[in-house]
Nucleic acid binder design. Structure first.
Lengths: 337, 337
DNA sequence: GGTGCGCGTGACAGCGTTGTCATTTGCGTG
DNA sequence: CACGCAAATGACAACGCTGTCACGCGCACC
């Protein structure tokens, strides 16, 4: 069963290959009956155009790259799904690739990846999206890309983000509203800007109530489950214990819950636990985790849409901020008497 | 910055493009000094060969497809990682694609996918790997593929699996060894052969102890968290309650744990809960889940290796069975007195 | 009735590699 | 020192498609 080509279709329909190409690409200036004839031939031959040849000839691969280096499995999965969904709608494909290098080597690898595969553009996710040398290299080489990155002012690159500061602030307000004053915080991986922003949101809310983050109540984590366990061990060993722990993502919050249970600390009656992301895991934990719904899927979906738009029009769409949502479930409750 | 081509390299090294191609592909019959000169040119020009052109000309894309339709997120993620790791080692790429269709349409879509993208081969994961019409179509069209599929005797296709029956049996033995007699079982998605096999393993172990699966203790699930919750509600409403629940994957076991906690049933002192898969979630639940380590990563890693070997040699490697391992953690304990 | 224009179509080059086959080069041998 | 053979290299077509441009035709217009 040798491959069917555009020539076979052309022969079957009694037209030239160029006309078949026109039909394939929905170009104008093809008479309706010709088009129908070609379509019929395509159908009976079960013809599928070679994406390789199409990309090589057309100088567009209809493929976007999705690059990441994220320790937070669930968040990443959602991002991926979002990007893939948008790609599919547009008839594009998505090539997912992790990069663990940094500095010059990262730049070389990424650029090599793009040129090797003729990518039309790149979706750059955190933390890669905040590396200045990578950004500069992409800019310089004219590689189209969209960033999913916390934004600071104007940019000349399509950028999508959520308001991490406000979100963290809202969650903190929620805890404060429940009467908590002694609230501990677990910071995320320092390479992620979101980690700083969520911490900032926490501090802002505390300060608005005249509170300082209590000494020893702020612990460095790394967005991983294990780092959540480690941080919780430290925090829950203190006397008095904090009455609430706000972990800056769900995976770490899961670690906190586990540790609390292991220590026989009841959640939420003795300890409130809050997460951030609203990833798959949040709904499977017990008690179901109060968290902030981070629109990971939408974030990537929109970023991909922006990139596609940019590729089409050449105009940089304005920064897009995707709304978040406080999700109060069962892991947070009134401060113990 | 226009793309560097093999011509640029050839000019820089003072050789023909064919010689560059030889160096690129590690062919013999190139003098060492010529090779060195070409390599140097490649390096200074930062040249990366176009995979598109290479695939089109060479009739090999060095790309494998990974097709799935699995509701169990974690298991799938691990499979994907395994396949990707093996591909990377071999300098291949992996194109991941879900397919939700069935029957003739599925076949059409998959075949179209393969021809469009010039895939060298396909890694077919459950439940797609047990659909007879898909298998027949791939066979007929001469599309190389490896199956991750519970095996029944000899096959002419590289196949990798684990021993689901024995694994489920061992877990059941573990529960029986703890004194449990009234053990409930939640069956997985009926489209997955693994669901039937795990159930069979359960029954076999019970029968070996002269026990029949107690009436009303076997519930149909679907491998999803929600189906676990639903099944647990049903099972835990019965009087007397079963003393143990064996859910045939971790996601469903998570649903059972959550439900038990909600009902105030202590695990494992009042109820033992067992899962299957040992996915990421198993270690994050409380109590940490006793489960069977399903070597998802290895399964896909090996399957990919087999496919690669088959593509190279044309010989079907023998069926490979990857070992599993009982992982006893904290969610199973002695039967309540 | 000739001119011009636009629509529909086709011929052909080119995308950046590899495969095939011819040609050149180098070296041992008689 | 010529000869032969293998090793090293190159010329060129081919992979399957799109871009460019040219062509033919019918129609409105002066």
């Amino acid at each position: 069963m040798s491959r069917k080509t555009i020539h076979d279709v052309a022969a079957a329909a009694g037209v030239s290959i160029k006309t078949v190409s026109r039909v394939l690409n929905d170009e104008t200036n093809v008479r309706p009956d010709t088009r129908a004839r070609v379509l019929a031939a395509i159908d009976t031959l079960q013809f599928r155009p070679s994406l390789l040849a199409r990309s090589l000839a057309g100088n567009r691969s209809h493929t976007l790259g999705f690059i990441y280096d994220d320790p937070s499995v669930h968040h990443l999965t959602d991002l991926q799904r979002g990007a893939m969904a948008r790609c599919r709608e547009a008839g594009n494909r998505l090539l997912v690739q992790p990069f663990v290098e940094r500095g010059a080597e990262l730049v070389r690898e990424v650029v090599g990846f793009v040129t090797q595969t003729h990518l039309d553009g790149l979706i750059v996710t955190p933390p890669l999206s905040v590396l200045p040398d990578l950004a500069a290299a992409l800019e310089e080489r004219g590689i189209a890309h969209a960033r999913i990155a916390p934004g600071d002012g104007a940019t000349n690159v399509p950028t999508t983000d959520m308001d991490d500061v406000s979100a963290a602030r809202e969650m903190t307000e929620h805890l404060l509203g429940l009467g908590h004053r002694d609230i501990a915080f677990i910071i995320g991986h320092p390479e992620h800007v979101s980690a700083h922003q969520r911490f900032m949101g926490f501090r802002l809310a505390m300060e608005a109530h005249g509170l300082l983050p209590p000494a020893g109540r702020v612990v460095q984590g790394a967005y991983s489950f294990e780092s959540g366990v480690a941080a919780a061990r430290k925090l829950l060993a203190a006397r008095p214990r904090p009455t609430a722990i706000f972990a800056s993502n769900d995976d770490m919050a899961a670690g906190v819950l586990l540790t609390a249970h292991d220590l026989g600390i009841a959640v939420p009656s003795e300890l409130s636990v809050a997460g951030f992301d609203d990833s798959f895991i949040a709904g499977t934990l017990w008690p179901r985790l109060s968290t902030v719904h981070q629109p990971s899927f939408d974030l990537a979906y929109e970023a991909t849409g922006q990139l596609l738009a940019f590729l089409k029009t050449g105009e940089v769409p304005p920064r897009l901020r995707v709304p978040h949502r406080l999700v109060v479930r069962a892991s947070t409750g009134p401060v113990p008497a």
